[in-house]
Computed example of a mutant assay.
Amino acid sequence: MNYLKLTQYVYLLFAAYFIYDGVTKLIDPQTGTPWLSFIIAALAIFMFFFRRKYAKKFEDRNNNSK
Rank of each mutant, 00 (worst) to 15 (best):
N2K: 15
Y3V: 08
Y3I: 12
Y3G: 03
K5L: 12
K5A: 09
K5C: 03
K5T: 01
L6M: 09
L6D: 09
T7N: 14
T7E: 09
T7F: 11
Y9W: 12
V10A: 01
V10L: 08
Y11L: 13
L12G: 00
L12Y: 10
L13T: 05
F14K: 00
F14Y: 08
A15V: 11
A16Q: 09
F18Q: 06
I19V: 10
I19A: 01
Y20M: 05
D21I: 03
D21Q: 11
V23Q: 11
K25T: 14
I27Q: 08
D28C: 06
P29H: 06
Q30H: 11
Q30A: 13
T31P: 05
T31C: 09
G32P: 05
G32T: 03
T33H: 11
P34H: 02
W35N: 15
S37N: 14
S37V: 08
S37Y: 00
S37C: 07
I39A: 15
I39G: 14
I39K: 11
I39C: 10
I40M: 05
I40D: 05
A41Y: 04
A44P: 05
A44M: 10
F46E: 09
F46G: 08
M47A: 08
M47S: 02
F49V: 07
F50P: 01
R51T: 05
K53Y: 02
K53C: 00
Y54E: 01
Y54Q: 01
Y54W: 07
A55Y: 02
K56V: 04
K56T: 03
K57P: 00
K57G: 00
F58I: 15
D60P: 02
D60A: 05
D60Y: 04
D60K: 13
N62P: 03
N62R: 13
N64L: 12
N64V: 01
N64H: 09
S65N: 09
K66D: 15
K66M: 07
K66G: 15
